[in-house]
Amino acid sequence: MVMDDPDFLEMEEAETRIGIFEPGRWLERDIDWDKMFRILLLSGAAFALGMALTVVTTLLAVVMGLVRITPSLNIIFEPWSFIFISLGQFGFVILPIRYVRKYGISLRAIGIKAKKPAKEIVIGIIAGLGMLTLSMFLTLITVELTGEPLFQDEMLLAHDTLELIGWALCMILVVGFTEEVLFRGFLQRRFEIYFSSSKKRYKDWAVVITSFIFAVLHLDIYGVPTRLLLGIILGLLAQSRNYSLVSPIIAHGINNFGLVFWNTYYLLPA
Results as ranks from 00 to 15, higher is better:
Met3Asp: 15
Asp5Gln: 07
Asp7Tyr: 15
Phe8Gly: 08
Glu13His: 10
Glu13Arg: 09
Arg17Ile: 00
Arg17Thr: 03
Phe21Asn: 07
Glu22Gln: 08
Pro23Asp: 10
Arg25Gln: 13
Arg29Val: 03
Arg29Cys: 10
Asp32Asn: 15
Asp32Gln: 10
Lys35Phe: 12
Arg38Leu: 14
Leu41Tyr: 11
Leu41Trp: 14
Ala46Phe: 07
Leu49Phe: 09
Gly50Gln: 09
Leu53Cys: 07
Val55Tyr: 14
Leu59Asn: 11
Val67Leu: 00
Val67Arg: 03
Arg68Met: 07
Asn74Thr: 12
Asn74Phe: 04
Phe77His: 02
Trp80His: 01
Gly88Met: 09
Phe92Cys: 03
Ile94Arg: 04
Ile94Pro: 08
Pro96Gly: 05
Tyr103Arg: 00
Gly104Ile: 05
Gly104Trp: 04
Gly104Phe: 02
Ser106Gln: 03
Ile110His: 07
Ile112Val: 03
Ile112Leu: 11
Lys113Thr: 13
Lys115Cys: 09
Ile121Met: 03
Met131Pro: 04
Met136Pro: 00
Thr139Trp: 03
Ile141Tyr: 04
Thr142Tyr: 00
Pro149Val: 07
Pro149Thr: 07
Leu150Gln: 06
Ala158Met: 01
Thr161Ala: 12
Leu164Cys: 06
Leu164Gln: 06
Ala168Val: 09
Leu169Val: 15
Cys170Met: 15
Thr178Leu: 01
Glu179Gly: 02
Glu179Val: 01
Glu179Ala: 11
Leu182Thr: 02
Arg184Thr: 11
Arg189Thr: 08
Arg189Asp: 12
Phe191Val: 08
Tyr194Phe: 15
Phe195Arg: 04
Phe195Cys: 11
Arg201Trp: 15
Arg201Met: 11
Asp204Gln: 14
Phe214Leu: 01
Ala215Arg: 05
Val216Trp: 08
Leu217Gln: 06
Leu217Gly: 03
Leu219Glu: 13
Ile221Met: 10
Tyr222His: 06
Tyr222Met: 03
Pro225Glu: 12
Leu228Asn: 12
Gly235Asp: 08
Gln239Arg: 14
Arg241Leu: 01
Ser244Leu: 10
Ser244Cys: 13
Ser247Thr: 12
Pro248Asp: 11
Ile249Lys: 06
Ile250Cys: 03
Gly253Val: 04
Ile254Asn: 02
Asn255Thr: 13
Asn256Pro: 06
Asn256Ser: 06
Trp262Met: 15
Tyr265His: 14
Leu268Met: 08
